[in-house]
Nucleic acid binder design. Structure first.
Lengths: 136, 136
DNA sequence: TCATACTGTAACTATTTTTATTACAGAACA
DNA sequence: TGTTCTGTAATAAAAATAGTTACAGTATGA
């Protein structure tokens, strides 16, 4: 993955949990994250696509959680938010005429898949409720 | 982390293992990875700093492993190569006047540390020898 | 019904990060 | 002493990320 998608999404979800069903608009959320409201709306669009949030358009609109925070686990958020490989790969194709270059992509993929599985397992052991409960 | 540092470093180490002590120069390695030789030399400089490789300057020079591949584990390579956070954070500081913004950086850091520990544990279960043995 | 305040989305710009290139001093070798 | 490397810096190009502007569509309520 990378870039700040996961951090921003989790920040959004935490805010929405903290206000317990109240609608928050993108400007308010952006104010907490300190980023552009359009970025927040894009992130919300993705969270919506994956069923984590609901939004209401028009005046007085905003977003709220679409499920119980105890049923949102952070591993699922990870998958929903993921866009790129966790561990980057070389932009160019390795040399197919080299015995190592020819096979390395597959071997790296296998290695990274295992590592990512371990990472997600760790994230999945926590729910949004757990995470949010840490804020006091 | 991210960008392709880890992939490139592991590609280099695998090549060096495969040739069993023979010196490989940066141009040859770059040819296998399909990237710029200067990038390889920078990556080698970092691997050298962390004791994984040795280099010989001058004509006929190149690099070779500095330790037994059975004693290089991929978790250690991860730490040696890591430059950035595994999971990105928002570039801007969250709003310190918001109860969530004020604390989220610490909470994200804790969460990511756990996740990274799990990831590294997975990587550490394999050595360069293991990884390289997969190439036939 | 009309001004207002939102979302959703696209198009574009700016900034930052990553990768590639050029260049060259110094080392080893033949 | 010419050649072929490393090591490293400086710079340029390319790609990824974030910010901005703009606006159609939707809900609200005066």
């Amino acid at each position: 993955m990378n870039s700040s998608h996961f951090s921003i999404s989790l920040h959004i979800l935490t805010l929405l949990d903290q206000v317990k069903g109240q609608l928050l608009n993108s400007e308010y959320i952006a104010g907490s994250i300190n980023c552009n409201p359009v970025l927040v709306r894009k992130e919300l669009a993705n969270l919506h696509k994956h069923g984590f949030v609901q939004s209401k358009e028009g005046k007085g609109g905003g977003s709220t959680l679409a499920k119980n925070p105890a049923e949102i686990n952070l591993g699922d958020v990870y998958w929903a938010v993921k866009q790129k490989k966790l561990l980057g790969e070389s932009k160019n194709e390795p040399n197919p005429d080299c015995p190592v270059g020819k096979q390395i992509t597959k071997h790296l993929t296998d290695l990274y898949d295992d590592a990512e599985t371990a990472l997600v397992k760790s994230l999945s052991s926590k729910t949004l409720k757990d995470f949010s409960a840490g804020f006091k």
